[in-house]
Amino acid sequence: MNNYLFFLEQVGEYVILIPALLGTCLSLTGRQAKLRVVELWGPRLQALIGGIGVIIHELSHLIVALIFGHHINHVTLLHIPNPRDPSDTGLGVVNHAWNNHNWYQKMGNFFIGIAPLLGCTLVLWVITNWLCPFLLVDLALPTYGSAPVSWWRLLLWLFLTFNISVGGFDLSGADFHNSLMGVGTLIIVILFITLALAITMNPQSFHTQLIATMKTVYLIMAFSLACNLGWIGLLAIVKHYR
């Protein structure tokens, strides 16, 4: 029993709690960054500043919805709002339907709702590996290649990271609502998976592997959060002196 509680604590803390806190902060700061852009320059510019992130955001919803067998009704990966229409504020949408009596599809709502957090983090890791893998090597994080340090690689990495951070991590109210619908089923599945891990794995080995894996996720999300906070601060200065 103690072994099972140890595994449950590890999964709850490192896989659920810390990513949830970072994801919530990312979503809130991303939303604030977009709102401040709209206040200063109108709704269209937010699509330019964070457009790549928006596309990854919606693609993440779409891919995970398909994985969980949801029916896709309508997809818009990037929408440029009409400045003359105050109600036209959406930048993208994935409209999907599911069978509420199917536990797999119902649980999928949780992952579909948070999919942009997972998708943007994964894309940022791939981009960093491609353009600036030395950053991961210096932090003793997993990397799959090496590339020469050059100004254009660093500049492109900064541009893409900033765009994705500002535009991709912002979860809408509908995203949070969808996630809540799948929480109950997800908790039951996590309890069974944790039990299987407790039976088959050594606690110390599991802890070491878990920390090594999640450290990459934490650092990428933390850097994206820093991008959002820096952008919000810069916009506050621009607004002050405008």
Rank of each mutant, 00 (worst) to 15 (best):
I127C: 02
G90D: 12
L186N: 13
F192N: 06
L78H: 00
V217H: 07
I72Q: 06
A65C: 12
P148E: 10
F206M: 02
P148S: 15
P148F: 09
N228W: 01
F176L: 14
E58C: 05
T200E: 15
H71S: 05
N228F: 02
L118K: 02
L219P: 03
L156T: 15
K215E: 11
T185H: 12
W157D: 04
P203R: 07
Q204Y: 12
L8M: 11
H177S: 14
G23F: 15
A226V: 05
F111A: 12
L78C: 00
F206W: 03
T161Q: 04
H207P: 01
Y144S: 07
T143H: 14
P19W: 07
Q32N: 14
S165C: 09
N2M: 08
R242P: 00
F6T: 09
L136Y: 03
N82E: 10
T208W: 04
V217R: 11
I80Q: 04
V166R: 03
T208D: 14
L45I: 05
W151C: 06
G50P: 00
F159S: 09
R84Q: 08
I232A: 08
K34A: 15
G50C: 09
P148C: 06
L131M: 10
V123C: 09
F159N: 10
S60I: 01
I114F: 12
Q46D: 08
M214C: 06
V11M: 12
H57R: 07
Y4L: 13
A115P: 00
C120Q: 00
Q46A: 14
N178L: 10
L229M: 11
T216S: 15
I237A: 13
F111P: 00
A115E: 01
G145K: 06
L21D: 04
L28I: 08
V238Q: 08
I63P: 03
F111Y: 09
I52D: 02
A47L: 04
A147G: 04
G119C: 04
G173K: 02
I127Y: 00
A212G: 07
W151N: 13
C120N: 07
A65K: 04
I188W: 06
G230I: 02
L210S: 03
V137S: 14
G42N: 10
L17W: 02
P203D: 11
S205T: 10
I16F: 13
M107P: 02
S27R: 11
L122F: 13
H101V: 05
I52Q: 01
S146N: 08
W98I: 12
F176C: 05
D138N: 12
T29Y: 01
P133H: 03
A33D: 02
N129C: 13
G113V: 11
I112Y: 03
V11N: 08
W151L: 14
F162E: 05
L154G: 01
L45V: 13
T76S: 10
A198M: 04
C25M: 14
L5V: 14
W98Q: 09
L191F: 05
V183E: 12
L21K: 07
H207M: 14
I63K: 01
I55A: 09
N99M: 04
L117S: 04
I232W: 00
L8A: 15
F68W: 06
A196C: 10
E13L: 09
W151D: 06
